[in-house]
Write a protein that binds this DNA or RNA. Structure first.
Lengths: 236, 236
DNA sequence: CGCATGATTGAAGTACGTCAACTCTTGTGG
DNA sequence: CCACAAGAGTTGACGTACTTCAATCATGCG
């Protein structure tokens, strides 16, 4: 098994709605296992697509990206995982994608064998894992409809909102979101080119939907409008 | 929990490679539960996106599609599920997508509550379910890279090959594959328009990669070339 | 047989990609 | 601390692959 899951807020949280309360659950607490700390420098690779999966990872700080390659070098980024997110699932098999550090990152490594055993004893842990799968699956479906049917502006708006909501859940009410990844990474996540990403962001800026302190810090000025674009994408 | 999984060949089958042996496992056998048979007429809806999930479904005959909608009617088809495929997972939550019959279809319905209980007793069933999740997850990732980074010809070639491989697994060595869904459905699965789907198929025909008995039966003439296109997409 | 639906083909438009120049940022070493 | 280089980000001009619009052709069901 090999999946990556974002931090979950409560079990089996339906829809993309925001959780009212933050469950400060992490793998360490719920599994009673001690993850081994590992430091990753920017761009270093935690896992290759062909590798055998031996660990589940929990991001402590920093950000990593999960990505797949085509033969000619084209990339599709499956997801970004920041502090609190968990990557991988306790069932042995080869990897589906590579994992690479977006910037200097610290992760905790849990051997799959240990987690597997722990799941046998703890139904709470099993439920927790299923909850993670649930979140990740929902994320995949949203990503698919983005890639298949949304226009660049809608994809970008949805992307920004995802980050906004993610940090809302952690209690940060600031309208400034941090995008640690490069424009190329965003492009490879959204199925666009870096130029298109820039132009869409430029468009949002000119229309006062967002403002940019620098290229990695975006302030959301018009949340409702962005949500409108993200969902139906009528405006241009 | 709410996921859809294609028929699995052995547990945790890695990669998209073909299984050597067919495991004739189905939910009925492994869970010792009796699914309730339900008949669906073409285009009838088994499940709405907002519905609460109460059952896991196993397709007996026919084909259904899982799809998501945008506000303005745009559709993204997540997957097609034919005989032997299982849809849904035993964890209660609302649905992520709608399920609709592509043609007249028979499904077996298993109440989630029963499956949930059965999983508590049977680790084999739990493993089976995890195997299904595994397959489905891999399918999602391939779908994402298709939607995000592949060109129409590559997407279509990959789509045809998926069907070819699927029936190979069931023991059918014929080069003729059946595509029960419409061109529009294929388009909504591949993130294209129906016209583009037609044109790509036309291109394949003119280049003797495939031949068409009728619009729903495609004969594969040049498997290696199709595989080449599907993977690196250099030819045009 | 006839209408409705689906499939195909053609012509025209455009949104996004490609190519290229330029700017801004970041890091490094003198 | 500044100079410079290397990388990342942005913007513009241009091309084109795919979509859109429209017409025609098949298919199938009453």
């Amino acid at each position: 098994m090999n999946i990556a899951v974002s931090r979950i807020e409560g079990f089996a949280q339906p829809g993309g709605t925001l959780s009212s309360a933050v469950h400060k659950l992490n793998l360490q607490q719920i599994s009673n296992l001690n993850g081994v700390k590992r430091r990753l420098t920017k761009n270093s690779i935690l896992l290759h697509e062909e590798d055998e999966i031996k660990h589940v990872y929990e991001v402590v700080s920093g950000t990593v990206k999960a990505l797949k390659f085509l033969a000619d070098g084209r990339r599709q980024i499956i997801g970004f995982f920041g502090a609190g997110d968990i990557i991988g699932l306790p069932l042995e098999t080869s990897a589906f994608y590579s994992i690479q550090a977006v910037k200097n990152t610290v992760v905790l490594c849990y051997p799959i064998s240990q987690l597997d055993a722990a799941m046998g004893h703890s139904s709470a842990l099993t439920k927790f894992i299923f909850g993670l799968v649930h979140s990740e699956l929902e994320r995949h479906l949203d990503h698919m409809i983005s890639l298949g049917r949304k226009r660049p502006k809608e994809r970008m708006a949805a992307f920004l909102l995802t980050y906004y909501k993610k940090q809302l859940v952690t209690g940060v009410t600031d309208m400034v979101i941090e995008l640690p990844m490069s424009r190329v990474d965003i492009a490879d996540y959204l199925g666009l080119t870096q130029e298109t990403v820039c132009r869409v962001l430029g468009h949002f800026k000119r229309n006062n939907l967002i403002a940019a302190k620098n290229s990695h810090e975006i302030k959301i000025l018009d949340l409702p409008h962005l949500e409108y674009i993200a969902q139906s994408g009528v405006l241009h």
